[in-house]
Every structure is written in C-alpha cells, then in structure tokens.
Design a protein around this nucleic acid. Structure first.
Length: 118
RNA sequence: GGAGUCGGCUAGGCAAUCGCACUCGGCUAACCAACCAGCAUGGAUGCCGGUGGCGUCGGGUGAGGAAAGUCCGGGCUCCACAGGGCAGGGCGCCAGGUAACGCCUGGGGGGCGAGAGCCCACGGAAAGUGCAACAGAAAGCAAACCGCCUAAGCGCUCGGUCGCAAGACCGGGAGCCGGUAAGGGUGAAACGGUGCGGUAAGAGCGCACCGCGGUCCUGGCAACAGGAACGGCACGGCAAACCCCGCUCGGAGCAAGACCAAAUAGGGAAGCAGGCAGUUCGAAGCUGCGGCGCGCGGCCCGCGCGUGCUUCCGGGUAGGUCGCUUGAGGCGUACGGCGACGUGCGUCCCAGAGGAAUGAUUGUCCACGACAGAACCCGGCUUAUCGGCCGACUCCCACU
RNA sequence: GCUCCCAUCGUCUAGAGGCCCAGGACACAGCCCUCUCAAGGCUGGUACGAGGGUUCGAAUCCCUCUGGGAGCG
C-alpha cells in the first residue's frame, strides 16, 4: 500500500499538453492571489499543476516558497478531492501574501471548485 | 570612555510529527520490464531464476556569501587549423603571484585626509592626421587689439645759442620707420613662475631660487628617487579622437557533445504478387485505359490525389542513458616568502535535480532573524544585504 | 540555463563631442476662425532609464546598475 500523504510525480501535471487541456476545458475560480482551473481526469486521483512565474511573484526564492506551500496544501487535501486535474496560477497579489492568507485563499477556492463539480 | 580606519569569521538554534531528492541496507505475495543466465521450441514465444522498477521499513546526506548580474579569465566538449602575416577585439607605471585574467600582492608616482588610511584606465602628444563651440587681437606658430617707448635712423615743426647768410649745436613737440610683450581684457586653456638687476620701454637680456629639458654620477631587478654641472625655455591640452608602441586573443557553447532508439513519412537493397493496350527486338522502365482507396458531390457522370506485401540496411524524430560531480577540492600542520602564494605530510568525501529536491504544523529559547535558491565545474570582479563576533591600528577626552 | 539586442516628450522618431536648457509628426491644453463641430491658423507644456568617470564641455565616449525584448528544446 502506498502511504496516503505521499506526493510523487504521478500526482503532478508535467507536460504542456496536460496544462493546455485543463486551461481549455476546465472550470475556473480565482481571487486576487491565485487563479485556479480544474478538469475531471481518469486517473482515479487528483493531480496538481502549478504555474508560478517569477515575474508575478518577485524572485526565485518567493516563487519556490509559494510552490512548496501550495503543494503542501494539496498533499493534505488530495484524499478528500475527487479525480481532478487542478492548475493553480499565481497572480501578483500573492507577492507579499503571508502563509495564512495563502491557506485561507486556497481552502476557499478548492471548496468552490468542489461544489461546482457536482 | 568616545569617534574612526582596515582585515577576517558568521548568516537564528533545539525537539517532535508529516512530506521531498539522492544514497546505503532489509523486506517484497502480486504487478511491470525493452536487461542477463538457463530450459523448452523449427520459429514467434513460453517457463523459471537473477537484476532492476513499483511498493514498503530503517539509516546517512541535502543550496549561497553572494548560489545573482553574466562583466572578465580558465578547465571540459565539438568544429576549424602547415607556418607566418594582415584585419578586428582586449589590456597598458614597475616587479611578482597564478591554469589564466581586466584579478590579487608588494613597490613607485599623483591626489584627498589631522591621522590610521583611502582613491587613481597611471605607456607615447620632439611619428603623423585631427579637435578646441562662444568669447578673444591671437587657440599653436609666432603673431600683436588696447597699451607702453621714441634711445638709434628719417625728414617736419617750436624755442634758445652762435652766425651777415647758408647753416651748425642744444632742448621740446607731433609723426614715419620701428622697438616691446611687463600691464589690460577674453577664455577651460594664452608661449615658464617669484624677486632683484637692467632698459627708451621692455624682455631669460643677466643673476638667485623653483619648474622644465637632455647629459653624467649614485642607489634600485625595475618603475623611480637623490645629486652634479650644463642649457636658457624650445617641448601647451585632448589618445575613454584616429593613431603609434608593447603584450595578448581561432570559433562556439553542457540546449557543448557521446551512445541506445519506437511509431509515421521518405531514401536504398533483395524477394514475391500484379487486368488490358501502346512504346520496344524484348522487358511493369515509361505512357494511356481499367481496378482499388480517399476527397469534391444528395446521386450519376465527371474532376483531383494516391497506389501492393515481406525482410533487411543507413540517416534520424519522440523517448531514454551518459556527460554529472574527486576538484587548479576542503580542513589541520610544518617549512619557504614582507605578502599574494608555493611545497611537503596527514586527514575528509561535502547537493547532483530534470516543471526541477529544504516545506508545513506544534512546542521552546534569544539578540525576533537581511539579501536571497545550485542546474557542467572552477578563479575573480560587480551589485544586494538585518545584524552579531574576533583581531590590528589611528585620533580625542579623563585618570594613574 | 545559455546567447544576443534595445532604451530620447503621452506615441512614433531625428541626432555620430560645442550650432541642442534637444528638432519633427501625431496626440494634449489655450486662443482665433464658425451659428456649432471638424478642418485650418497662432501660441504653449512635456523627454535624453539611473549613478559614476573621461573632457574645458557628454543624449553622443567609457564603466556599473535598472527596465524591457528576441533566439536556442
């Protein structure tokens, strides 16, 4: 059995076509910090794609940190999520956002997505 | 105690849980594999085992002083190359260090500071060509606008003396021919500076000191410094203007490059199949018709495009593997050197990903945490940066 | 990651060491013309990305930053 909280390459979107598919056909939500797109997949579990430009966020250190925080959220939430491909895009509002604000925003956006998927 | 200068080190700590990358060692029923060995078989392939993957458990390691900018220099790789030169780029006081450098160390010269110290692209302008707006007489070679002078030369004129007169002599004035560059004024910059002498007025015209120049001597590897006598000012600035001199540089970059290699299309080779007619001595070599497939079209006619199968070969795409971290390496120590650094010995292995690994939560402590994330690797420079610690030195105040 | 390029009014641009407190076009503001608007005419404001250096003098030459953009799978 796989450990339930693990996060491996199989849980990630990795290629440009995968991202394109979600952007084109997925449903969207967003706020000042992030944009989020989601689309049903047939892998039997949720997958995460991150699109965080250094230009939007400031520099490489802030970019990496944001990526890690978002991934951590997804890791804890992914059991509860349906089989979706989720792409999170950083917006300039996220540049100086503290970790708590990021958490709050992501929880709210994910619940919106989940509601609209029914 | 205060103010300051220089050099070096450091970059929140600890604990618990979950998670990530690499790595070592276990377990691994089932699943996956294009690798390896064995067996079966004519062969495709199958079976069994190993190894690996996936999974899981435990241990170890895991960003920086700038990882940054990509401004220099090298290693490495491929391409080019007989040798030499030209063109083009870079560098530029001297000596040393180094794999190399535009870096570093020591020294010289210049500038700043009271000092410790700091700063300087710092070769050549008597090889040539250029440039200098405006102002100013004149901007580079001696020339003279205002001014100063009228000694010498030339006549003119006034006064005086002498003389019968022509005229001579003395003194003055304006002028010509001239002399001069001290002063004025312009400018960023004006043909050595100051003083004395000198002169008609002046001037290196003469002298003293300073500056400058080449010569000689002394010290130094040298840059350069000191000294002597001489010259008598000629030789102004700009080379981050062209240039000259000396030294130096082949080009590209790990998306370099090497290897393995599916599918599709196309290339080559072999074999097989292939309706009719023409061309031809003959032949699927070519042409036409037909057949089949696709498209246009509601359908027919028509029009357009394509034309088989099997095996092998080479190039090569996706994809994968290597390059990928042991190195001009770190630490300690001894010796040489003022130092940068070098040499010897001992010891350690310290990130290697591929949408790209360090995060989250909780507790706790304190000085409440800046700038910021490796992507082939090193040496520098530059830029960003909350602080803390250590050492050396300077100046001021007080006390002994 | 690597290799390059660019930067002048709000926009597009001229400029090659002094003629430039930077010129032109469009745009903007005011005035004139018109019954009004447009067109036209007159007038005006507005820029050398930043900081150092070289030079008597820099948009121009040199250095260091900053901000944009392009190419390489």
């Amino acid at each position: 059995m796989q450990r339930p909280l693990a996060f491996r390459t199989q849980h990630r979107l990795r290629s440009a076509p995968e991202f394109e598919r979600v952007y084109r056909q997925g449903i969207r939500a967003g706020d000042a910090l992030f944009g989020i797109s989601a689309l049903k997949n047939d892998h039997g579990h949720a997958r995460l794609g991150l699109s965080i430009g250094a230009k939007a966020v400031g520099n490489a250190v802030r970019r990496n940190r944001l990526r890690r925080v978002l991934r951590e959220h997804f890791r804890h939430a992914k059991i509860e999520l349906p089989a979706l491909d989720i792409v999170i895009t950083a917006r300039p509002g996220a540049r100086h956002a503290p970790t708590e604000a990021v958490s709050e925003s992501i929880v709210r956006l994910l619940s919106q997505i989940r509601k609209r998927c029914r």
